[in-house]
Measured scan of single mutants.
Amino acid sequence: MASDGVVVEIGKVTGSVGTTVEIPVYFRGVPSKGIANCDFVFRYDPNVLEIIGIDPGDIIVDPNPTKSFDTAIYPDRKIIVFLFAEDSGTGAYAITKDGVFAKIRATVKSSAPGYITFDEVGGFADNDLVEQKVSFIDGGVNVGNATPTKGATPTNTATPTK
């Protein structure tokens, strides 16, 4: 695992066909100046998982989280898009600690492993708008004895992609 920078880890949970599971997305290594904004994309298989919603985690402190935390689910493109932009203008609602960034709610549709993997990152910046190093650890849903650990090695991303 990367020793510096922010680590975004997609949790690994267990479920069975027809059940709804909650998959946490963790941030670790949050910089001392916090995270003022970030955007990134995960990939998944809508034939295996139906993403039914995404909720902000406990490290989102904006009293009205829909102003700073936004997501979009595109089953036709097989992606989930995340956007966080601190909304106070003063840094008061920045992410300042490690913990759960988001909770992905999904219904298991198939007995195949439900991988959720890193696809791309736009950027991560602290309260001074300084770009942060970030790496990703894939996860998803274990169905029966299947284990979604494909790509469990962190993917280092030093520069934003478009």
Rank of each mutant, 00 (worst) to 15 (best):
G114F: 07
R105G: 11
K97G: 14
G140D: 11
G139W: 10
V121F: 01
V25P: 03
I116W: 02
N64D: 06
I60M: 07
A2V: 10
D128V: 05
F118D: 13
A36G: 13
L129A: 02
D55V: 07
E22K: 06
T117V: 08
E22A: 06
A36L: 07
S16M: 15
D39M: 00
Y115I: 07
P148E: 03
Y26N: 14
T107P: 12
T153L: 11
A72M: 01
V100C: 07
V48H: 04
F124E: 00
D76Q: 04
A146D: 11
G18F: 04
A85W: 10
S3E: 10
A125E: 01
V130G: 08
T66L: 05
R43S: 05
T147V: 12
D70P: 03
T20F: 15
P63C: 08
F40W: 15
S110A: 14
T149F: 11
T66Q: 09
A112R: 13
D58F: 15
F136Y: 04
D138Q: 13
D119M: 07
T153W: 15
G57L: 13
Y115G: 11
D70F: 15
P56R: 13
T157C: 14
G18C: 06
F40D: 06
I79G: 02
L49E: 02
Y115H: 07
R105S: 13
D76Y: 02
T155F: 09
P75Y: 13
F82E: 02
I79D: 02
T14L: 09
T149H: 13
T161V: 10
I10M: 07
F82Y: 15
F118A: 07
V48P: 07
V6N: 11
A36R: 00
V30L: 13
V7N: 05
V25C: 02
V48I: 05
V7R: 07
A106V: 13
A102E: 04
I79K: 02
D128P: 01
R43Q: 07
G53T: 10
T147W: 07
N64V: 05
G114P: 06
T19E: 01
K133V: 11
N142R: 14
T14R: 09
V143H: 12
S16R: 13
D39E: 01
P24Q: 06
I52N: 06
E120M: 02
P63T: 13
I104W: 14
D70V: 15
